[in-house]
Design a binder for these strands. Structure first.
Length: 169
DNA sequence: GGGACGATTGAA
DNA sequence: TCAATCGTCCCA
């Protein structure tokens, strides 16, 4: 069953771990569906979080983070990889979950390549989209947490907050 | 208008 | 350890 807006419009620290074990579905124009299980995510939370793109205020790139939960936030990194994020919480509260890993693709850049996700998905609504959405599976996997990856620039506190969630079963 | 820099990856 | 590669952001 497809996750609805209530699932997404909660605090990112609740949504992020809840996304583990869920099924990310990508439906192509050909009609083929690629279904993968989310295994690794990271939470980015508000303007105080120096690791979060929203920490420097609203910009052209991050504006969708300030919209309601359930929308897709996609951006290009290192000039070659698209990062797939799920916006959470409510309007004006900028939060997002970076999906870092799924079954069949063990990295954020690899999974967007596998699922053919690019800038055209910016602002896509996971609640109503016909080409990408997330389904509940009824499975509640156990998980572990670690600091987030690749954000040393965020300083000693924010670079070490244990907001990376990894499925452990 | 110009320069620095990534929420990464894969090869040396 | 290091290059690839370019849109975004910030300063001038």
């Amino acid at each position: 069953m497809r996750l609805d807006s209530h699932f997404y419009q909660r605090d990112v620290l609740e949504v992020a771990p809840d996304l583990l074990g869920k099924t990310l579905v990508r439906k192509f124009e050909s009609g083929d569906e690629l279904r993968v299980t989310i295994t690794e995510v990271e939470a980015y939370r508000g303007t105080d979080d120096l690791g979060c793109h929203a920490s420097r205020g609203i910009t052209e790139r991050n504006r969708v983070m300030f919209a309601q939960g359930g929308l897709v936030y996609v951006y290009l990194i290192y000039g070659m990889y698209w990062m797939f994020n799920v916006v959470t919480s409510v309007e004006t509260d900028p939060q997002a979950v970076l999906v870092r890993g799924v079954t069949c693709a063990d990295g954020p850049g690899k999974l967007t390549r596998l699922l053919a996700i690019d800038k055209s998905f910016y602002g896509e609504d996971l609640v109503t989209s016909s080409r990408i959405w997330i389904e509940d599976t009824g499975v509640v996997p156990s998980f572990i947490t670690t600091p987030r990856i690749g954000i040393d620039y965020a300083g000693p506190y924010w670079s070490k907050v244990p907001w990376r969630f990894l499925m452990s079963t």
